[in-house]
Simulated assay, not measured.
Amino acid sequence: MRSTWAFALALLLQLIPVDATAQSASSNLSRLLEAELSRLPTRSGIYVKHLGTGEEASVRANDEFESASTIKVATMVLAYRLADERKLDLNQRYVIKQADYRGGSGIFRFNDPGLNPTLRDVITQMIITSDNTATDIMIAKVGGKDAVNRFLRDAGYQVLRQNNTTLEFFRLGYEAADPKYKALKPEDIFALNTDLPLFVEPRRALIEEFQKRTADKEVAQRMSAAWSAKANWFGWATPREMGRLLESIELGTAASRQSCDEMKRILLAQQSGVIKLPHYLTVPIAHKTGETGTVTNDVGMIYAHSGTIVIAFYNVELAGPRAETEDGMGRVARTVVDYFDGGKPQ
């Protein structure tokens, strides 16, 4: 009995320093990240987790941030879960109509109506070019934003939320310019964001009226205020919850293993945000960017030499050049990789 207790005590004593060391390491990295974030002209939050060691570090990881387009990851996950359940066929083709066109980011808006991509193609563009046309098509295909939010609540996420479709988000700003713009059709709203003759020519009067109205500084400020108001954010996120969603993709628990592998392949093909998290990295990163006027975010999985690192980096209330913050995001990502890889060449 005495030898058994001695063995148990020795084992306990061995465990205590390990836990303390892990906590100390996490605290050291968090302090390092806090110092880096303090240099940025933003209100920033970050969550980092090394999936091999389990070590975490964070700064304001539980604060709520404007997700911008990073919330599109949730729609992708739900689409693949539905595909696993055979409730959605990602090989199905969708004909893109004039009413589907959305302004902002993406490539579908530069093409004539009638494109006939598969839903898998639509998801891919929603992620790698942050295509807003693709986004609203996919939100509708998975059952609407309420379905996205039910999935997130059922999965235990308290903050992650698709607050608006891209059409709703754009409309809020125009409605702030003039309440009558609430009645604008999707084609009308897109016409205010494009120079495609197909949309512009029939709406010359609307466009000229809108340009005159927004030439008024007060009107322009109302629009900006509407788009930046928390209640009107495109989506809500915390760095920690987004990190958890990314981790579930990496570990193959968000959907089937095959679906998770496909989602990672899409994230690895990212075409946006090369000066954000990937800026100074030479190791692969699967990621999704997001930005609005005063927001710039990037979230993903860095495939470092020491193992996969989940990172979710949010920046709002930009008070300086966007490039300064995005360059800083790259420096932080390099610092994180160097920390875990022990300074090994990337």
Results as ranks from 00 to 15, higher is better:
K217P: 13
F151L: 10
D146E: 15
A176P: 01
Y157L: 12
N149K: 07
L184I: 09
T166K: 03
E187V: 11
Y157E: 08
Y174C: 09
G173C: 04
K185E: 15
P186H: 07
Y174S: 06
I207L: 08
E168G: 02
A183L: 10
D216G: 04
A147W: 02
D188W: 01
L160V: 03
F190A: 07
A177E: 00
N149C: 11
Q211V: 02
A147D: 02
R171W: 00
K185I: 12
D146Q: 15
Q221N: 12
K212F: 11
A205W: 01
A140T: 14
Y174D: 07
D146S: 15
K185D: 15
F170D: 03
K185F: 10
F169W: 04
Q158C: 15
F151C: 08
R213H: 01
Q162T: 08
F169Y: 01
E187Y: 12
R203T: 00
A140W: 01
K141Q: 13
E209Y: 07
A177D: 09
D146L: 14
E168H: 04
E209A: 11
G173Q: 05
V148Y: 06
R204I: 00
L196T: 02
E208S: 15
V200W: 00
L198E: 09
F210G: 01
L184D: 00
K217D: 15
Q221C: 14
P186D: 09
A183R: 11
R213P: 02
G144N: 10
Y181A: 05
E208G: 06
A220Q: 15
L198P: 00
A205T: 13
D178G: 03
E208Y: 10
L192M: 00
Q211K: 13
N163K: 01
I207G: 04
A147T: 11
V159K: 11
A205E: 14
P186F: 08
R203D: 05
E218I: 12
R153M: 12
E187L: 10
L167F: 13
I139L: 06
G143M: 03
K145V: 06
I189V: 14
N193S: 15
P179C: 07
P186K: 12
V148T: 01
L184G: 00
E175W: 13
G144S: 09
V159Y: 09
E201C: 10
A191S: 09
P197Q: 09
D188E: 13
T165S: 05
E218N: 14
Y157V: 00
T214G: 13
V148W: 05
Q158S: 15
L172N: 05
L198I: 01
G173D: 00
G173L: 00
T165W: 05
D195M: 02
D178W: 09
Q211A: 12
F190C: 02
A205K: 12
L206W: 04
P186S: 12
Q221K: 15
A205M: 06
P179W: 03
Y181P: 07
G143P: 00
E209H: 06
K141I: 04
L160E: 03
L192T: 04
E168S: 04
V159M: 13
